[in-house]
Design a protein around this nucleic acid. Structure first.
Lengths: 227, 227
DNA sequence: GTAGTCTATTGACCGTTGTTCAATAGTGCG
DNA sequence: CGCACTATTGAACAACGGTCAATAGACTAC
């Protein structure tokens, strides 16, 4: 399959054959081509693992040559990260449509709802994003960690924390932990949906509040903490 | 460097030279060799990423030929997983020395202490274990997920839960989330130690209890829950 | 129409990788 | 000494990620 006849055929003959068959090249604008390739990467890498997909596979799927792919992305990893970043952006964007008129607690509720909605619809992409196709690659890790901090910002943005509270080490560690809680339970839930989406959401909200209560000194507790 | 003189030298010449130099082969027992190779894999893969280390590197480090490596492990991935599994076993073993005489809450405390002790001493190995060198590989994922469930068992084993409680979906989801909490905060803490080890431990314990309180119906709450 | 320019596109090529396998060399037994 | 057993080797292989000079389609200018 690798060394088939066409591959070793001399260049000139191939050229003539090309003319005869009228195999016309498709010329695309730079931006269109880039967008097409990133879209393909998003789809393919959400379905299969990083090293199960070769550059040749991608080129064949895009109906272009390998060389052209390298004209747009310096390395396979760059293409992968481009796709992953878009998946990440979509997730963050889906969550961050916040309604200023809502009470803080309901704002969290809405955000988590949007979050669960989105990862339900894009379960495979979500898992492959969070599990990190190339776990040890620093760029990939920074995309994933970026999602966490951006999600955190979106969940809690504009909430009336006392500044001293928000900067305390306990608070930051606890929130990072809560993100881990949500992530772990979400991934588990994607595979074994033992709770309804609503039950899961309420669990997240309740746990968040309990964690904040544990972490915060009494006088700094979030104003809207129930009871 | 790749195609150096020695490499392309005809076999017979090489053999004669070998005799002259008296380069004796080292013959090892099967189990010893296997153990040596797994130990090497553990060390190397804890330090560097999966695809930064080639089979040639490993063979050279072990002072054996590539072929022999494949005599013991059918594929590079198998060797990697063998090393990873030992790292995982060591972590679980370190945590699971439980003292039956202690009160349940203190047993959790001791376990978490051992956990933090261990990941402090083997931070790199821990991170590369939990971040998964080949994130999407199902076998690797199952090793990591195995660590989570075994840690969970160790943390909570022998605690006086009502069976109905332990089997409830809310409980299981919540505990899986707590594992995510501990993991996320631990990895964060390995990189930015903003809290003391003791503070972190107490945070974990408190959050665990609050989560259990949130999740459990009143009459089933862990007997030892403080207050 | 034709010549020339620009650049999107190609395919042959390279070195390295993971993997295979027939050949080899130590070791112990009769 | 001869023989079997197996730990060990090294050359070969296909596939991979990546490079590059050459090509072809679209545009402008005359």
């Amino acid at each position: 399959m690798l060394y088939d006849e066409a591959a070793v055929r001399p260049r000139r003959v191939a050229r003539i054959a090309t003319r005869i068959v009228k195999k016309t090249r498709v010329r695309l604008d730079t931006d269109e081509r880039r967008a097409q390739l990133v879209a393909l990467a998003k789809k393919v890498f959400a379905e299969s693992a990083y090293d199960e997909i070769s550059i040749d596979d991608l080129a064949k799927a895009a109906k272009i040559s390998k060389g052209l792919l390298y004209h747009y992305f310096p390395t396979k990893r760059d293409l992968y990260i481009a796709g992953l970043s878009e998946i990440a952006d979509e997730l963050v964007a889906a969550v961050s449509s916040l309604d200023e008129t809502l009470a803080p607690i309901d704002r969290v509720r809405v955000s988590i709802d949007a979050y669960l909605d989105h990862i339900t619809r894009h379960a495979r992409a979500f898992v492959s994003l969070m599990r990190g196709g190339i776990g040890s690659d620093p760029e990939v890790a920074s995309v994933v960690e970026g999602v966490r901090t951006r999600l955190f910002d979106t969940f809690l943005n504009g909430q009336p924390f006392a500044p001293a509270f928000a900067e305390s080490a306990r608070f930051q560690t606890a929130v990072r932990g809560w993100i881990g809680f949500v992530e772990g339970a979400s991934i588990d839930w994607c595979i074994h949906p033992r709770l309804t989406r609503l039950e899961l959401r309420e669990l997240f909200v309740q746990v968040l509040f309990e964690i904040l209560r544990v972490v915060a000194p009494a006088e700094l507790v979030w104003k809207t903490l129930p009871k």
